[in-house]
Design a protein around this nucleic acid. Structure first.
Lengths: 332, 332
DNA sequence: ATCCTCGTTGATATCGATGTCATCAATAGG
DNA sequence: CCTATTGATGACATCGATATCAACGAGGAT
């Protein structure tokens, strides 16, 4: 573990000298090549360890023309409001690491702007997360001529592989659940400028079409409890009648629920609520929130596997929509 | 934006040929060097853009002997339970990106194991997050002879710069607040094997020492609502008497609160509760949770600034303890 | 005219690892 | 005994950008 010389970081050449072999033999030995005699391989490994040799990644990347790095491009890090940071993202990144690391890829975290601006990013592929409402950003990155996988909902006209939760199915399940609970006048809360939210609403509508229940409104609202509460209050003030709410996220569901209770409308007595995500809030909120669960870890694994396949030129699975799951709690 | 040749990625040499200059001039021009005439600089820039030139990071890193990359080493990604992922981490990473990116550093995300195992990580410095209870991990990384900054609580005997929230002060503030609310028999909930938790308890104790109030127990418990609820139930079953709780995290506070309410003990009527973090749960929980706020974005900025200073050989600020803040809500 | 300086540009070596091909010894086959 | 083959190792060139130092022309001073 200790260094030999002064501040100099050991190179293969130094190891080679110490071992009395050539650098190329060291290179082969450290990669476990069959071309090097096992004893020699062993000895070189020990020496490398002793002097604390660590490979110079830049040199190898330059020679092999691959960085073994995947860029994870995040649109906005929504840190403006620490209270409403999306935990799914964190779990997703965790899943990603769990897939990329064993496949011998490093994970580079960047923002969209930096990724485009800085030519100084030499990733073998990129994963785009949180494209949000701006499809054009996806288009910009796609123009980079790099293997790319995006998280979210497929964007028409952009030829990029997209993996996402089955939002439409989620909407359908939510509708069916509310209908099964005997609800018939339903309200949707969420900003449909986000393709994912739009898909949830589409699935929701679809399921309603073949039922007695009706959609009495689709209110745009931000992804915060406060915004959702405002929207619900406004709806109530307008005299809108409804007995069920499907919210595009658990934060929205929480805010909506609070607004109803504040007006002495019982949940789930008078109104049932279904959220989306299964974020921590959903289980901690009182009443706890029935929700459509997205599996962040699974998402990370799927994205990781897909980008690795693509980078290494394998066909890769086609499955693009990840299953979602109804979690029944107290609001329904 | 479009490529010239076939699948070949353009190099400086190609740009140089097109511009009728030498590669070194292109290198200088793209870096905005004063040595190149402004008109020439301009023209080279345009040509580079036209052919879609992007710098080969590996080549530059090799030559300059710096990767302009900071590794962010995460201990465990706590994805086992999506419902309790720590959002502070996400916000912290966001803040980090906001500091490192403008300083022209890329952010490499790795796990502790991978960082140590894979010699294939060529970062200029590392930020250790979530060392948790294992100080020896910090020691291992420290042995790497690399600029390092850690997030958390200083570990005795490890010579690594540590930046963290002022946990001790947080504990002190929590105690003072509970005392101000007239509470005198206080319970602490949290696993003191985590240095940060231990520091919170230490500050809590310290403040109690100069008051009438007393600590009636310090119960170890995991960072989940369920675990905290169990701990509180057990305490109640034992007949433990208390009128105030200081929890090491908001999740713990939430679980404790739920357990009390379940036994018809009024919060904050009979027992006041103070949490830690100001996680989303704190504001969404009913009753909403009084807490000691850690500022994740600020943490990220501080860590980023510190590691950049260290990597670039600047002295760097000494300030290691970030201010925390009392946020009063309904549980107290 | 000669020398010097300044501003601008280029030739060359270099960073560290690896692909390619050459080398050389030992062994097998005839 | 000689040649073909296999196994193990090395010499050299190479990846693309940049540091270093040399070169060169224009203009000013002597």
């Amino acid at each position: 573990m200790s260094r030999t010389g002064k501040g100099e970081r050991p190179t293969m050449e130094m190891v080679a000298t110490l071992a009395g072999v050539s650098t190329i033999t060291v290179s082969r030995a450290l990669r476990g090549s069959e071309l090097v005699r096992p004893e020699v391989r062993e000895r070189i490994g020990q020496i490398a360890n002793q002097v604390g040799y660590r490979m110079n990644v830049a040199a190898r990347s330059l020679r092999t023309r691959e960085s073994r790095t995947i860029a994870v491009v995040i649109d906005q890090f929504a840190h403006e409001n620490q209270s409403h940071a999306d935990p799914l993202l964190l779990v997703l990144i965790g899943g990603l690491l769990e897939t990329l690391t064993p496949a011998n890829y490093s994970t580079l975290l960047t923002t969209h702007e930096h990724f485009l601006a800085s030519s100084a990013v030499g990733a073998d592929g990129a994963i785009i997360v949180g494209q949000g409402e701006n499809a054009h950003r996806l288009r910009q990155v796609a123009a980079l001529n790099l293997p790319i996988v995006a998280w979210g909902e497929p964007v028409p006209g952009v030829n990029v592989k997209v993996i996402g939760s089955d939002n439409q199915m989620g909407g359908k399940i939510a509708a069916e659940h509310l209908i099964a609970r005997g609800r018939s006048r339903l309200l949707f809360l969420g900003d449909t400028k986000h393709p994912e939210v739009a898909a949830r609403l589409a699935g929701f509508r679809e399921a309603l079409a073949s039922s007695e229940a009706m959609l009495v409104g689709a209110l745009p609202c931000p992804f915060t409890p406060a915004g959702a509460a405002d929207a619900v209050r406004a709806a109530l003030d307008e005299g809108k009648q409804f007995d069920g709410i499907f919210a595009a996220s658990d934060f929205i569901a929480a805010g909506a629920c609070d607004a109803l209770i504040e007006r002495d409308i019982a949940v789930p007595g008078a109104v049932s609520i279904v959220g989306f995500d299964d974020a921590p809030v959903a289980s901690v909120h009182r009443p706890s929130i029935t929700t459509i669960r997205q599996d962040g870890a699974m998402a990370g694994h799927a994205l990781g596997a897909a980008i690795v396949d693509m980078v290494e030129g394998r066909p890769g699975e086609a499955a693009a929509a990840l299953p979602v799951e109804l979690v029944v709690r107290e609001t329904s």
